[in-house]
């Protein structure tokens, strides 16, 4: 215990030698040091060497100023604006380093996506563009319809000409394709049948007798009623219905003959119906053609649309490169300015 106390006393004195030498200790401390110096040779030697070192320091010659540091008012005002502050320069360097690091990370990520993730990208790229192609006409109606109406017209006229050229031979083939006249004719036949059935009901004729037309007397009244009732319907349904003269009183026979008159105008109706029908059908065909053509065109057009807009990663790289260039230029300029202004 006394050894530790003695050691701490030696340490305290050793640390106080400098102040003791300068006379900066209190009287009690000075006495304590002097008492220790009498018994401790190491501290005495330490005091002597410190004194010598301080003497050597105080003998160092004064180094005069190499030039005048007089202040010029112009320099005082101009210099602060020229010389950037030290912290600003450090901040600039830090920002430059950060931008460079960010660029390296972005480029690394880009390379990693290109080389590591090339298979998934190549696999998913067409699948991702396919819906755009399919939906392109419906999404862009303002752009697509313009060529749709022009180009199909050529096909439409060709189709119409082909139809007209083949119509006399294929009139009956074309006619069934047109639903409107067929329905009209069917309506007409249905009306006729209703008329005949009504006449039969009226005439109490047994059903299933096709030769009911042989009873001319009774059905005439029913024929008139039927014609009065059903004629309005047929007139509204088919304006070209050639109503047979009821005065012929041939009853049901007159109901059957309307077919030829209606069959004869049917080609006209067909002809009229084919033309409007033809305008619709080629349009639909043309629309299909246009959609197919757009689909075909959309595939080569796709790279043109995808190429100019950069991917977000590339865009970020570009921005960081520009920022980095600006920062590097500013840093170099600041370094030059600092070196120049000192």
């Amino acid at each position: 215990m006394s050894f530790l106390r003695k050691k701490s006393e030696h340490q305290w004195v050793d640390e106080s030698l400098s102040a003791y030498m300068d006379g900066e200790l209190s009287a009690a401390e000075t006495e304590r040091v002097e008492n220790h110096l009498q018994v401790c040779r190491a501290c005495s030697e330490s005091l002597a060497t410190i004194r010598q070192a301080v003497t050597l320091l105080r003998e160092l010659p004064l180094v005069p100023a190499p030039r005048s540091f007089a202040v010029r008012p112009a320099v005082v005002r101009a210099r602060p604006s020229l010389a950037p502050p030290a912290w600003g320069y450090g901040l600039l360097k830090g920002a430059t380093a950060l931008a460079a690091l960010l660029l390296m990370l972005l480029i690394g990520g880009d390379l990693a996506l290109q080389f590591v993730g090339v298979a998934p990208l190549a696999y998913w790229a067409p699948a991702a563009t396919a819906p755009e192609v399919a939906l392109a006409p419906s999404y862009e109606p303002a752009v697509v319809p313009a060529p749709v109406e022009e180009t199909p017209m050529l096909g439409q006229t060709k189709d119409a000409e082909a139809l007209e050229a083949s119509r006399p031979e294929n009139a009956q083939e074309v006619a069934p394709a047109a639903p409107a006249p067929t329905e009209a004719a069917e309506d007409y036949v249905a009306v006729e049948e209703a008329a005949t059935t009504a006449a039969r009901v009226e005439g109490a004729e047994p059903a299933g007798t096709p030769t009911a037309a042989g009873t001319p007397a009774e059905p005439t009244g029913g024929e008139d009623e039927v014609l009065g009732a059903g004629g309005a319907e047929t007139a509204s349904a088919v304006p070209c219905t050639p109503v047979p003269d009821p005065s012929t009183r041939e009853g049901v026979e007159t109901a059957i003959p309307p077919e030829p008159p209606c069959a004869t105008p049917q080609p006209e109706a067909e002809q009229r119906a084919v033309v409007p029908e033809g305008t619709e059908t080629p349009q639909m065909l043309a629309m299909v053609d246009v959609q197919e053509r757009d689909a075909e065109q959309a595939v080569p057009r796709e790279p043109q649309v995808e190429a100019p807009p950069l991917s977000p990663l590339r865009l970020a790289e570009l921005i960081v490169v520009v920022v980095l260039l600006v920062l590097v230029a500013t840093t170099v300029f600041s370094a030059w300015l600092r070196r120049r202004t000192g």
Partner: peptide
């Protein structure tokens, strides 16, 4: 100041062989 002087003293003692005898620190 105490630590600085002691350190400088140690440095000069290390350089003792280079110092002229007149300036050499005598320990």
């Amino acid at each position: 100041l105490s630590r600085g002087r002691a350190r400088l003293r140690d440095c000069l003692l290390e350089q003792g062989e280079l110092l002229p005898a007149r300036y050499r620190l005598k320990d």
